[in-house]
Amino acid sequence: MSREELERVVVEILAGIAPEADFAALAGNEDLRDALDLDSMDFLNLVIGLHERLGIDIPEADYPKLFTKDGLLDYLAAKA
C-alpha cells in the first residue's frame, strides 16, 4: 500500500474518533496525541482501527513509534 493510501486509511479511522482532526495539516514530527487531543482510549481505538482495516498486529511496545505522523506512516508502510 502506498503512503498516500495509508494516510487515507488513518484519516478515515480518525474521522470516527476525532471528527474535527486535520491529520493532513500535522507536521511530520508532531505528537498526534497532543495535536489532535487523543486520550489513551482514543489512541487504543486508532490502533484497533488500524488492526482491523490493515490486518496488522501492533504490539503495545510499538505504540511510541506511532505517536508522530511520520512515525505512524513509516511503521504502517513497513508492516502493511
Binding site: 489513551s40 482510549m41 487504543l44 490502533v47 488492526h51 482491523e52 501492533i58
Partner: peptide, 17 residues
C-alpha cells in the same frame, strides 16, 4: 497489564483505567 496485553489483539487489550 503489559504481560496481559502482550499476546492479545488490540480490541482485547486493557487500559490502566
Amino acid at each position: 497489564l503489559e504481560e496481559r496485553n502482550r499476546d492479545r489483539p488490540p480490541p482485547e487489550r486493557l487500559l490502566p483505567a
